[in-house]
């Protein structure tokens, strides 16, 4: 039996839905999804903060689940549906998570913020009414060095409340 082995730098054509739009691009088989998002798709809102999957700055929602895009190969996303920070707002209207982060001073340097918001997005999809404890655990894979998290927790609480009271934000978007 022969396994189908691509050389690491062989290029593969990809097609996926990104923030609701169909996008195509080429990636080396070894290319990380985060580099594909940033450098091929040109969406630089997703950041890289480490190389050990600890910091979560690169968190995106892939096929409805939050993933650290530094730990996924671009080819694994082929045919999938991707939501990045750029896709959170709808028709010029900020997503309640974005609103919450702004309102509650949930960010300072802004570097961890997109990943943090995408982790919050995932959390609130699964658990629309989280306790403080659940929020803290829900974002424990995302490091922030500026805020001390208390205000991020408040921001996510704010968003949860908004999302519960405004069903127009339910489902879709990715």
């Amino acid at each position: 039996m022969t396994a189908l082995i691509y050389p690491a730098d062989a290029k593969v054509g990809l097609e996926l839905t990104v923030n609701g739009e169909r996008r195509v691009g080429e990636a080396e088989t070894r290319m990380l999804l985060v580099h594909f998002i940033r450098e091929v798709l040109g969406l630089t809102g997703t950041h890289v903060g480490c190389d050990t999957s600890n910091c979560g700055a690169c968190t995106v929602v892939l096929n409805g689940r939050a993933v650290k895009s530094c730990t996924v190969f671009a080819v694994q996303a082929n045919g999938g549906s991707l939501l990045t920070v750029e896709g959170l707002a709808r028709k010029g209207r900020l997503h309640p998570i974005q609103e919450g982060f702004w309102e509650k001073h949930g960010l300072q340097c802004g570097y961890c913020t997109p990943g943090m918001m995408m982790a919050a997005y995932d959390l609130l999809q699964k658990n629309p009414n989280p306790t403080e404890e659940e929020i803290r655990r829900g974002i424990s894979g995302n490091l922030c060095r500026c805020t001390g998290y208390v205000k991020i927790v408040e921001a996510i609480h704010y968003a949860a409340q908004k999302l519960r009271s405004d069903p127009s934000w339910r489902s879709g978007g990715d």
């Binding site: 969406l43 809102g45 750029e86 702004w102 570097y111 997109p114």
Partner: peptide
């Protein structure tokens, strides 16, 4: 904060 408008929408410009 004024600067947050870009940061919360992934529109900051960092070196990378």
């Amino acid at each position: 904060r004024k600067e947050d408008v870009r940061f919360i929408q992934g529109r900051g410009t960092y070196v990378d």
